[in-house]
Amino acid sequence: MFEIVVVPPGADELSEQMGTKFKFWYQDEVYGKTLFKQGRPGTGENWAEKLACEFAELLGIPHAHYELAQWQGRDGVIRHGVICPSVVPDGARLIHGNELVGGKVTVANADEKVNNYALRNHLATRVFQFLHQAADIIMPPQAYQPIEGVHSPLGVFIGYLLFDALIANQDRHSENWALVRTSEGFYC
Rank of each mutant, 00 (worst) to 15 (best):
G19H: 00
D111Q: 12
D12R: 00
T43F: 01
L58I: 14
C188I: 14
Y66H: 10
F55L: 15
V114F: 14
I95F: 07
L119A: 10
Y144A: 09
Q133P: 05
L161A: 15
K23N: 02
L68N: 06
P141A: 04
N121E: 15
V105E: 06
W71I: 03
Q145I: 13
Q129A: 12
Q27S: 15
V6E: 13
A48V: 14
L166I: 13
R40D: 00
F128W: 08
L166K: 10
T20Q: 07
L94R: 11
P153W: 06
T34A: 02
V107G: 04
F2Q: 10
F36D: 01
S15C: 07
V88W: 05
V5L: 12
K21S: 11
L14C: 08
V88S: 05
A64W: 03
A118G: 08
E54Q: 15
D90V: 12
E184V: 03
I78M: 05
A69E: 01
W47D: 13
P8G: 06
G155I: 02
Q72W: 01
V88T: 14
D171E: 04
E148A: 13
K33T: 13
V180E: 10
L100N: 03
G91W: 01
H173W: 08
T106I: 06
R93I: 08
V87F: 10
E175C: 06
F22D: 00
D164S: 05
V6T: 12
K50V: 14
P141I: 02
A134M: 15
P140N: 04
D111P: 00
I158E: 09
Q27M: 14
H132I: 11
G102K: 10
D136M: 07
V82T: 14
K37D: 00
Y144S: 05
G97A: 09
S15Y: 03
L162N: 15
V7I: 01
G39I: 00
I167C: 10
D12V: 04
F128T: 11
A124C: 07
E3L: 11
Q70M: 07
G91A: 05
D136P: 05
G149N: 10
M18D: 13
G155C: 05
A52Y: 10
C188F: 14
R93P: 00
